[in-house]
Nucleic acid binder design. Structure first.
Lengths: 194, 194
DNA sequence: CTGAGATTTCAGCAATGACTGAAATTACAG
DNA sequence: CTGTAATTTCAGTCATTGCTGAAATCTCAG
C-alpha cells in the first residue's frame, strides 16, 4: 500500500472501524480511499492501493453500492469502471441515516407492529406487550422526526444542529409567540408550527 | 426456551438483530428478555429461558453492563444477583446514544484531529486533508448537538421530536424573535437575519 | 475460618464471516 | 461475430468471533 501517510492512516482506521459500523474491513477501506480521493478510481487502482485481491474489491464495491455510498462512472475512451464517493457531506449523512435505519430499525418496527396486534394471554404477556408498545411508540417518534429532518436542505439542517439545545428555549417561547401571533395580523404565513 | 410466544418472538428477533447493532446474539437475547420482564431475573433463569450456557450468560451480562443497559440488584435473603433493565425508555435512548457515540464516533474524531495537525506534503494530501476537515467539522457539529439534546429532560425531548421539521419553521421566525429580544443573546448560534 | 453456592475466567471447539484465485460472465473494439 | 479486457461469481481456505464445560475465584452464612 503506497499512499501518503495521512491517507494511509485514515484508510486503515476506517478499515478497523468498519466492523463497528456493520461493514467489513475492506469495505471500510475502499470507502475511505474514495472519499479522500480527488478523482474517481478504477478497481485496479483500489486493489493496488489497498493490497487486497481484485475479487475482494469487487465485492466491496457491490456492498458500497448497496449502501448508495459510491457511484460508478465511465471515463471517455476507457472501458474500465471508475468509482467515486459523492462529495456533498450532508447528502452522505442523509444516505447513512436512511440506510442504517432500513437495516437496523425498520425490521424491529415491523416486528413490533405484528406483535402488538396479538392478544396477550397472561399478565406477563400483558406487561411485555406494554413494554413493546413503549418501544414501538418511541421508535415511531424518532423515525418520524428523522423523516422530517431528512427533508431539510443543507443550510436548514446546519442551522438546526448549530442551535442544539437552544431549541428547548425556542420551545419555551413558542407559546408566547403564539399569543403575539394571534393578536397581531403581521403576516399570514407560518407563525405557529403545531 | 419456554416463553410466551410474543416474548419468544421478540427475544429471537433481538438475537438476530444483535449482529447489526454491534453485539452478539446472546447479548441481544438477554437484553430483550430483561427489557420485557416484569421483575429482575437471575442468571440461572436467563440461562434456562434462552437455552444457552451459564458462562455465556455471564459474559453477556458483563457486556450489557459495559453498555450500561442493565443493572445488578440484590433481593433480600437471596445470594444470587438479579438483573434488570432500567425502564425509563428515554434514559435507555440516551444511554444507547452515548455508548454508540463512544464506540463508533469518538475514535474517528480523535484520529481526524490528529491528522489535521499534520502539514500536507502534496496537492493530493491537501485535498485529502480538506475532506477530512469537512468530516471533522460535521461530526463536531453532530456530537455537539447530541451533547445538548442529551441534557434535555424527557418532556422537552418528546416535544422536540414531535415538532419534527416544524423546527425549520420555528427557525424562520427566530430572527423575528431576535428583533424583540435583541437586548440579550442567548447562545452562540449565528443569527442570520435573511 | 470453612465450605457450599454463585459467578467469572479461559482453553478449546464450533460457527460465522472474510478473502483469495480460478473460472464464468459481461462488455465492447475491431 | 470474435477476441480480449474488465468484472463478477463462487468454492475453498483462512481468520475472527461466539459458545461451552471445566476449573478457578469470589462471597457469605454458619
Amino acid at each position: 500500500m503506497t499512499l501518503p501517510p495521512i491517507v494511509q492512516a485514515f484508510v486503515l482506521h476506517f478499515g478497523e472501524m468498519g466492523g463497528r459500523w456493520g461493514v467489513n474491513r475492506t469495505v471500510g477501506q475502499i470507502y475511505a480511499l474514495l472519499f479522500l480521493s480527488d478523482r474517481p478510481l478504477n478497481a485496479e487502482e483500489i486493489t493496488e492501493a489497498l493490497g487486497v485481491s481484485r475479487s475482494n474489491v469487487s465485492m466491496g464495491i457491490k456492498e458500497l453500492e448497496a449502501w448508495r455510498l459510491v457511484r460508478k462512472r465511465h471515463l471517455p475512451g476507457d472501458r474500465r469502471e471508475y468509482l467515486e464517493a459523492p462529495d456533498d457531506i450532508w447528502q452522505i449523512l442523509r444516505t447513512l441515516a436512511e440506510e442504517r435505519r432500513k437495516r437496523e430499525i425498520d425490521p424491529t418496527l415491523s416486528l413490533l407492529r405484528d406483535i402488538l396486534m396479538e392478544t396477550p394471554a397472561s399478565a406477563e404477556e400483558r406487561h411485555a406487550q406494554a413494554k413493546m408498545r413503549q418501544m414501538h411508540d418511541l421508535i415511531e417518534l424518532l423515525t418520524g422526526w428523522a423523516d422530517d429532518v431528512q427533508r431539510l436542505d443543507n443550510d436548514s439542517l446546519a442551522q438546526l444542529l448549530a442551535l442544539g439545545a437552544g431549541v428547548s428555549k425556542l420551545l419555551e417561547v413558542k407559546s408566547k409567540i403564539a399569543v403575539f401571533a394571534s393578536g397581531k395580523r403581521r403576516n399570514s404565513t407560518q407563525e405557529d408550527a403545531s
